[in-house]
Amino acid sequence: MHVGAHVSIAGGVDNAIERQTDVGGNCGQIFTASPQVWAGPDIDDEEAARFRDSDLGPWVIHASYLVNLATPKDDLREKSIASLQAECDAASRLGIEYVNVHLGAHTGTGVENGLDNAASAIDELDIPSEVTLLVESDAGSGTKLGDEFAHLAAVRDRSHVDIEFCLDTAHAFAAGYDLSSPEAVEETVAAFDDTVGLDELRCLHLNDSKHACGTNKDEHAHIGEGSIGDAGMHAIINHDTLQGVPFVLETPTEDGRGFAWNIDRVRELRAD
């Protein structure tokens, strides 16, 4: 089983390797820069070489939170494309397979326009051949896109780029896709397969939710201790069609527990 966490690169991107092993992970996710500012990756050749030498993986780079592919605003669109291009180039340097991004928000111009904008923005990227762009499901608040599986499929169908996908369990749950029981997991996995296709699912952000299904509230909880709960998490972790998909945790550090506790919990649920 590939399971890991989103770890810090403070002090150098290669430091993510030790941080991942320290929490018991064997794959993972990073930001290459602060996700709250328009700062691009700043990685020297030695750091990149040390990162590439690791046998952990697969790894995912998560794009900046400022990126908005669905925006109708030209300046924000240009910044978003440039930022995402820099992440794809960094992934190539680091030997990272995936770059993960949210579609963003249409800010009142309508879902269809937002989906068109996102697809055309993706088409402006020059993605290295060894890197795959993943579009992540969203919790869906305001005018954000990606809370419906149909949005993911629509962008894929409108883009000339071979994008694939990341499914976030807390986001899907917040968006109204129930995952709190084995039966609900079966229904949601089937809905994703029917609409998007499990053959294009490359990463699963494994997070419990502090809020109820359908609330559109994106706040993660420890594995098995949120509204998805042990039964839902057990069903997800042991689902036959998800066995080859890496689980990347973005769980909180609180109550004296962090990534190590949550990764151990995932392994316990897998063994049950």
Score class of each variant (00 low, 15 high):
126 D>E: 15
77 R>W: 10
132 T>Y: 06
100 N>A: 06
122 I>E: 08
61 I>C: 04
141 S>A: 15
125 L>C: 12
70 A>I: 06
32 T>Q: 00
80 S>G: 15
110 G>S: 01
90 A>E: 12
38 W>F: 11
129 S>R: 14
34 S>T: 11
115 L>H: 03
44 D>F: 01
48 A>N: 02
88 C>G: 06
138 D>F: 10
98 Y>Q: 09
31 F>L: 12
136 E>N: 08
128 P>C: 01
56 L>M: 08
77 R>H: 10
124 E>G: 04
41 P>V: 04
39 A>S: 14
102 H>T: 06
40 G>R: 06
50 R>Y: 01
36 Q>M: 10
44 D>S: 02
72 P>S: 13
138 D>S: 15
138 D>T: 13
131 V>I: 05
127 I>F: 09
78 E>Y: 09
66 L>E: 05
74 D>E: 15
122 I>D: 03
32 T>N: 03
77 R>Y: 10
139 A>I: 03
80 S>C: 05
138 D>G: 11
75 D>H: 04
47 E>P: 08
136 E>T: 07
144 K>M: 15
31 F>N: 07
144 K>L: 12
97 E>H: 09
114 G>Y: 02
98 Y>P: 02
96 I>N: 01
75 D>T: 10
87 E>W: 07
122 I>Q: 10
76 L>Q: 14
133 L>T: 05
55 D>H: 14
84 L>P: 10
130 E>T: 09
48 A>T: 04
58 P>T: 04
103 L>R: 00
75 D>G: 03
60 V>L: 08
84 L>K: 05
65 Y>N: 04
100 N>E: 05
64 S>M: 03
55 D>V: 05
44 D>Q: 01
133 L>M: 15
133 L>C: 08
110 G>C: 05
56 L>T: 11
88 C>F: 01
82 A>V: 06
105 A>L: 00
110 G>A: 03
138 D>C: 15
42 D>F: 13
131 V>S: 00
63 A>R: 02
33 A>S: 14
97 E>G: 11
113 N>W: 02
111 V>P: 01
70 A>G: 09
79 K>Y: 04
53 D>H: 13
128 P>E: 07
121 A>H: 09
53 D>R: 15
44 D>C: 08
115 L>K: 03
36 Q>P: 01
92 S>Q: 06
125 L>D: 00
50 R>W: 02
76 L>R: 12
109 T>D: 15
84 L>S: 04
82 A>D: 13
133 L>G: 05
136 E>H: 09
80 S>M: 08
121 A>E: 07
114 G>L: 07
128 P>D: 02
130 E>S: 13
82 A>P: 04
43 I>Y: 07
100 N>Y: 04
73 K>R: 13
65 Y>L: 05
112 E>L: 05
130 E>N: 14
134 L>Y: 00
80 S>V: 11
53 D>C: 12
58 P>R: 08
141 S>I: 13
45 D>T: 14
67 V>F: 13
103 L>G: 06
98 Y>K: 04
116 D>K: 14
71 T>S: 14
42 D>R: 15
91 A>G: 04
41 P>K: 03
48 A>H: 03
41 P>S: 07
125 L>H: 07
71 T>A: 10
135 V>S: 02
49 A>W: 05
81 I>K: 09
81 I>F: 12
89 D>R: 14
76 L>F: 12
131 V>C: 03
138 D>I: 11
146 G>M: 02
100 N>I: 02
93 R>M: 09
80 S>A: 11
116 D>W: 13
47 E>S: 15
